[in-house]
Nucleic acid binder design. Sequence first.
DNA 1: ATGCCGTGGAAACCACGA
Length: 257
Amino acid sequence: MKIATYNVNGITARLPSLLRWLEESRPDIACLQELKAPQERFPEAAIRDAGYGLVWHGQKGWNGVAILAREFDPVERRRVLPGDPEDLHSRYIEAAVGDMVVASLYLPNGNPAPGPKFDYKLRWFDRLMLHAAELLASDAPVVLAGDYNVIPTDLDVYAPERWLDDALFRPEVREAYRRLVAQGWVDAIRAMYPDQRVYTFWKYLRNAFERDAGLRIDHFLLSASLATRLTGAGVDRDVRAREKASDHAPVWITLAD
DNA sequence: ATGCCGTGGAAACCACGA
């Protein structure tokens, strides 16, 4: 079982690349973020033609998340993170895929910090923590996959000293991530690569990818029953190297059946 | 230190990203 997460940075602009990657990588489940398309303009037919059932939550202009499952229709459980009826950003969708619960999430960026956007990020984090605790208590196999916009540690950024005041790396955010994981989740990429630098995002600017000036901000959090099945993980860096690439690379894990 | 690049929406520039 292969599960991937991929911030596409615009599903419309990325559709050809996405379809090529799906065919090559053949994930059983793919969580997408930053669709940047309204609900009715998501290219559903093209994804279904590629062999994937799906649920998605679009939004005009920004955000947007989806869950794709190969030869399977995910059963939507929720399309908002509970806790704030006034939050209209489409940043969370959750579905059952077989006996597994899968969430695709796009945590707010939070810059500039401090400020209202940073406050929103921290509030969103609090809501995620409450919901994640409920999911853990359910004892279902759960994977929370997506763009967390969190650099967890110094090992996850090419130049930590340059990111100290950034909303992705501020102490409050690292602490929130640490507390979330401490509920009992396993950070799958870090579990597979305890000491290595693994990046999932490189800015478009200044040849960041060629210099490998990257960040690890796309994460898989696994509940305990899934973590024991973890057999592999990787980043499809070749996809990031292509023409017309997203600034994020697809990230994936494999689980024993 | 920087929005230098990229996307989308609206309008031929702007917001936003991380």
